[in-house]
Design a protein around this nucleic acid. Structure first.
Lengths: 387, 387
DNA sequence: TCAAGTTTGTTCGTGTGATGAAATAACCCC
DNA sequence: GGGGTTATTTCATCACACGAACAAACTTGA
């Protein structure tokens, strides 16, 4: 039962239901500015096609005839989202709403493209054993073009690897690859904190600092986003030096390795990330100081994003997201410092930075590719600059 | 002969011709993915309606039957663009392609809303004496909402002034007001260096620093863009202090009053802006030093914009644009400093910063309001976050 | 308990309007 | 002048969104 809305309008209706939860016909008609009659017809088609069903109506009761919410059959489709790291590949199986239903992981002993593809296909095979997988998405740090070709991924030593087509040929499933941050941001956009927002930004903390942005309802994708454009952003003229000799850049102020190094130096012993957070939360002076300086730096970065990209919301994620949690007041102070007091407050939200959330992002790339039928359709995206 | 395309498709076709120059029917059909037959019908309607004409075919000759380019009747519509300054109001009359055909100016002796409206209407009357004006656009520095209400304009001491409706009631013409930078950016987008770009940024230098951005084909408009979000951006930790006590912020590094002050202090005599530029261009050490520091700071700001908003192009304007002209190498150095070397080069272009260009921007706001029939249509903009 | 009110969803005939195919027009080159 | 090529037009066709009227399924209130 493939996702094949009969025409463009059916596609729009199906997407609206997919993205904005169960919706009644009348509500859909209002949202999409269509006649009720049209919705009767379209929803009948979509129900016939197995894309939508009428839910068991726990809809809010008001006056008049009760509405019958329509919903997508979430369990009718499954996607595999693969996150590629330097030493392991992990994967999550999700349903049509990007809810994770299964999770696998495999170590990676070679970063040769062929070996990695092999590993990915092992995951695909394992997942396919338990679920019917409709498409595969792969997320990795690096520059990936629209066709899923990895033009550069330093952490794997890759240049110009046609990853998605390699996997697709090897395992026979539609495969899409994208930069990990693109995937993460799109997942927030369709099913996460960014749902319903036409302008928001995502920021991830971890081994590096990542940035993704939805502007006017679509991803901001410069040709070379992905080379780590915010990674070395100068945030504190008095901060420590980073590997490239910048003083107080995002890498040196916000990434886990540097912060762990700083706290270890300060205490004269090896301190791990969780302990650092605990110490900071408990008010240990050295840890507090480092966390606060870091939080202020993060706030400045958020302010920069807010000033230039005008998001309604900034979502923080990544495995180091707890840094923001323990230094929220400093973050807010940093924002105030670099933001005009007359401007509206920046809304900052935190989200999970587990590895699963990266996989989920990759699954959303698969889901989008499948549902929007990428690879075939390029025409509608061709209209460039107008309006 | 009003701009009233019969239906939505006709509107799209007319817009395409307006924005992308004379175009033949076949070319339009290809661009908009329509059947040739459809274009015959639509263009006939539009020609009947007086919106389009067949040009005297100086189209590039190729094989086959020659095409007949269609163009809008540029001189059939005129717009008045008014730029509001603290001490004067100026206005330009433009045609449908935003080419300036006339220019007026009046001093302003009171900043009372009623007095300003009076002055504006004098300009409207004068313009209407020589041209048929279809709509009026007003640009000013401050926060202006979609309905043309000025919620704040410190330079006039205004709060919550329903400017556009005041002018509209007083002079009887459809009137639209917008922030000056919005107007400037939209003008670049529709008819200037930004035409055809779905992602670009505009930066203006003058008494302050202004920023506008088109992302994914539309203006990035935070609710509070306009309070000068980049005006106090920190650019040089060693720079001079600004009025608010920031060190090396955009105001202190890039605005004309500060630069004039700096060069005057350095030379021990009063130096005006043009002389400063001449000295810098001629290699006078002090002037060169100031201009280069300023250029590097500008480069850093451009890099910040390029990193966060991913524009394909950054256009510099404003009356102080020549600063960029005399310090281009420093600007490029500043960009390199804050941009990952693996990222693509940022394309920077300069444009006129004459007062006329601000008026032209305001005229484009009028033109857009008129052509897109704002104030009536709000429905299509309502679809917020999806896709 | 029944009538009135309200909102949802359906049926059906209608008309708009984009389309494909084929014809025609207006050039090129040789 | 003939063949090739591309642009534009003609025209019958047909998909499909719509409006209007109606049926359904509740709430509310007397």
């Amino acid at each position: 039962m493939p996702w094949r809305p009969a025409d463009e309008l059916a596609q729009v209706v199906a997407l609206e239901v997919l993205l904005h939860g169960p919706l009644a016909r009348a509500e859909l008609a209002r949202r999409l500015d269509l006649a009720p009659a049209t919705l009767t017809r379209i929803s009948a088609d979509l129900i016939d096609a197995g894309l939508l069903t009428e839910t068991a109506l726990p809809a809010e009761r008001r006056n008049g005839r009760p509405s019958i919410p329509l919903d997508v059959v979430t369990s009718a489709h499954h996607f595999l989202g693969v996150k590629l790291a330097g030493d392991a590949v992990s994967a999550a199986v999700t349903d049509l709403r990007a809810d994770v239903v299964d999770y696998f992981e495999l170590p990676l002993d070679s970063t040769e493209p062929a070996a990695v593809v092999e590993r990915i296909c092992e995951l695909v095979a394992r997942a396919a054993g338990e679920h019917v997988i409709d498409a595969v998405g792969i997320g990795l740090g690096g520059v990936v073009d629209d066709e899923g070709r990895v033009s550069s991924a330093p952490f794997l030593g890759w240049e110009d690897v046609p990853l998605s087509s390699m996997v697709q040929e090897r395992c026979g499933l539609p495969t899409f690859a994208a930069k990990d941050l693109t995937a993460f941001t799109e997942a927030l956009h369709w099913f996460g904190l960014g749902a319903g927002h036409a302008n928001f930004a995502a920021l991830t903390l971890g081994v590096g600092v990542g940035y993704g942005c939805i502007a006017n309802g679509r991803l901001l994708a410069g040709g070379d986003s992905g080379v780590g454009l915010v990674g070395h952003w100068p945030l504190d003229p008095l901060g420590p030096l980073c590997s490239r000799g910048h003083r107080g850049c995002a890498e040196s102020m916000l990434t886990m390795p540097y912060l762990v190094r700083d706290i270890s130096l300060a205490l004269g012993r090896e301190v791990q990330w969780p302990e650092f957070l605990t110490l900071a939360a408990d008010g240990h002076p050295a840890a507090r100081g480092i966390a606060d300086a870091s939080g202020r730096a993060l706030g400045r970065l958020i302010a920069a994003i807010a000033n230039l990209a005008a998001p309604e919301l900034v979502v923080i994620g990544g495995e180091g997201v707890d840094l923001a949690r323990v230094s929220m007041p400093a973050v807010e102070e940093g924002i105030r410092e670099h933001r005009d007091p007359r401007a509206a407050d920046v809304r900052v939200e935190l989200t999970s930075g587990s590895n699963e959330s990266w996989c989920r992002g990759a699954a959303v790339i698969a889901l989008q590719g499948y549902v929007l039928d990428r690879r075939r359709v390029r025409s509608s995206a061709a209209r460039t600059g107008s309006r």
